[in-house]
Every structure is written in structure tokens, then in C-alpha cells.
């Protein structure tokens, strides 16, 4: 698999660390795994750590926007952190950071959601 996902739960916050490449193929698996975490573990917020995500296309934007909407329904938030410049370009092009918060690293992202790491 080209994408590896690491899920860590802290209280009602899910930390999701992605590594590798996020395209349409990987987005299908990511969506299923992420939704299961939200449902099974009563997750309200997600911190998406993209430090080791080296490639993403518009399918990645789609799955992230989809979960943003889902968390919003649960009165939750999504915070994205540690993004590389190539991936950042797509976020900037889509305007996603107008609605999703960005923090420079996972520690600040956790603090912003009131979780001490």
C-alpha cells in the first residue's frame, strides 16, 4: 500500500498521521478507516498530521473535506498540521484553509483543542 495511516486517540481527539501518497485509490481506504474511528470510538475532533505525506491529489482534498463536514455535524473540529510545500499548494488552491484550522505542529494542534500532550 502506498499510504500508511496511524491512528492515536487522546480523549475525544483522533490524531491521524498519514505517510506516503494519498490519491483516489488510497482515499477509498482512508475514508473507511477514518469513519470507523469516528463512529466506534466516539471521536469528535481530528488532528491530521501531514508531515510525512509526500504526494496528494484532488481525491485527498475530497476525503478531507468529507470528514470536515462529518465532524462539523458532531460539533467537532478538524486541525491540520505539519504540511509539506507540495501538498500545501493544493490546499491553497482549493481554499480549504479558509475553513480548516492549520497549526505548525501536532503539539500546538493538541493545545488548540484543549488536550495536553
Amino acid at each position: 500500500m502506498n499510504l500508511s495511516m496511524q491512528f492515536v486517540r487522546m480523549e475525544n481527539v483522533l490524531v491521524l498521521r498519514l505517510e506516503g501518497e494519498l490519491d483516489h485509490h488510497a482515499a477509498i481506504e482512508l475514508r473507511a478507516a477514518w469513519q470507523e474511528q469516528i463512529r466506534v470510538h466516539k471521536i469528535q475532533h481530528t488532528i491530521l498530521n501531514l508531515e510525512n505525506l509526500h504526494f496528494m491529489d484532488s481525491s485527498g482534498l475530497g476525503v478531507i473535506l468529507g470528514r470536515y463536514k462529518e465532524l462539523k455535524q458532531l460539533n467537532g473540529e478538524m486541525v491540520i498540521c505539519s504540511i509539506n510545500p507540495a501538498v500545501r499548494r493544493l490546499f491553497d488552491m482549493s481554499g480549504l484553509f479558509k475553513i480548516v484550522r492549520y497549526e505548525s505542529n501536532e503539539h500546538f494542534a493538541l493545545l488548540s483543542l484543549g488536550v495536553a500532550s
Partner: peptide, 21 residues
């Protein structure tokens, strides 16, 4: 930009915009 014929598949509608950019 942002148009998709398949919103149920969580498409972002950014494909052609990215190609043109």
C-alpha cells in the same frame, strides 16, 4: 473549480483546475 458531477463520491471538483494550474 469545485464543480463535480459526483458529490456523493466526495470528489473535490478541483481536478481540471489543478491540471490548468
Amino acid at each position: 473549480p469545485l464543480y463535480t458531477s459526483k458529490p456523493e463520491l466526495e470528489r473535490s471538483g478541483m481536478g481540471f483546475t489543478i491540471m490548468e494550474n
